[in-house]
């Protein structure tokens, strides 16, 4: 199933009554988040399949000041062939690639070149990532630049001040303008939840982003002091479930930053399956923003295939 199977979220007008009175009980959210991982367990082929699915959903990411076209090409090569051949064969699979590659705008063109013919979309961060504190026209121009360079998806950052100050109209207008600037490219709205702090703020920002037409809501830039956590993800997922119940539109979810282990990969997928359902385990509605996670998943899958514990030195670097 490809991304086009679900119609894009057209958004709605700003509807503050959908989120203003939201009540989030933090200890209860934390308890449910902890409970999810304990309630479900995946063994043997099932665990392997779920880990393969995690790879299908990874936005393999490099967002560093020292990124170069060559470093991006290496990442893209890994995105095309995320598992060594013997592991893939051992799993009984022929073909596998990551959900996307995620880079800075100036790295889009090298990424597009490197991924040519693979069907792997290129995602670009934009809008003054990671802080977003640039004039709006420059941020919109950055989106247009990235789309022009060939980006299929744009990961925007929101102005945290709008959330902390409760200026929902400003937040809505900003994201709606970004959505327009994206054109055919899908918009992923990074809420930088580590900066928003409270779960109520997370819910409200999620709802505004969806009302403004976000195709995905995403937890973090990876640069905040706290990135994706399960309780925050739970609240965002519940927001997109509520939005779906009200509008019938499907919105995707992307936790980013902080998912490093196979246990994380499984926990977040269990969260999606339990709180949403099967559809939210497809790459068009679920992505994981990660760089090191793939290495751990590959080691685990090699162990599944060979019965021996693996060494990362035998696996291709991303």
């Amino acid at each position: 199933m490809s991304a086009t199977d679900f119609p894009r979220n057209p958004g709605t007008g700003l509807m503050p009554e959908w989120f203003e009175d939201i009540r989030i009980n933090t200890p209860a959210a934390e308890a449910r988040a902890a409970d999810l991982g304990a309630r479900r367990s995946l063994k043997k082929n099932f665990q392997a399949a779920w880990l393969v699915n995690a790879i299908r959903c990874i936005d393999l990411t490099t967002l560093a000041g020292d990124d170069t076209p060559a470093r991006v090409a290496r990442l893209c090569a890994k995105a095309r062939r995320p598992l060594a051949d013997h592991i893939l064969a051992g799993l009984g699979l022929e073909q596998l690639h990551t959900g996307a590659v995620c880079v800075y705008p100036t790295m889009v063109a090298p990424a597009v070149r490197a991924l040519e013919g693979s069907g792997i979309p290129v995602a670009s961060v934009a809008t003054g990532f990671p802080a977003g504190l640039m004039p709006l026209d420059l941020r919109l121009a950055e989106i247009r630049y990235a789309v022009d360079q060939g980006a299929d998806e744009i990961d925007i950052v929101i102005t945290r001040a709008h959330v902390l100050g409760g200026d929902w109209a400003a937040l809505y207008d900003e994201i709606a303008a970004m959505r327009e600037a994206c054109g055919p490219a899908h918009l992923k709205a990074i809420l930088a939840t580590g900066d928003l702090q409270t779960l109520s703020n997370v819910y409200r920002a999620s709802m505004v982003a969806m009302q403004a037409g976000a195709d995905f809501i995403k937890t973090s830039t990876g640069k905040e002091s706290v990135n994706a956590t399960l309780p925050v993800s739970l609240v965002m997922v519940r927001a997109l479930r509520d939005y779906g119940e009200r509008t019938g539109h499907k919105v995707g979810f992307k936790p980013a930053g902080g998912l490093k282990t196979t246990k994380d990969a499984l926990n977040w997928q269990v969260l999606m399956k339990e709180e949403m359902g099967r559809d939210w385990l497809r790459p068009d509605l679920f992505r994981i923003g990660a760089s090191s996670l793939l290495g751990d998943v590959e080691r685990q899958l090699e162990h599944h295939v060979t019965g021996r514990y693996a060494s990362s030195s035998r696996h291709a670097l991303a």
Partner: peptide
């Protein structure tokens, strides 16, 4: 036990005794 490929379609949990 179903194959990895089959499970990738169903995304079932499977037995975990």
């Amino acid at each position: 036990m179903p194959t990895v490929k089959e499970i990738l379609d169903s995304m079932d949990y499977g037995p975990a005794p």
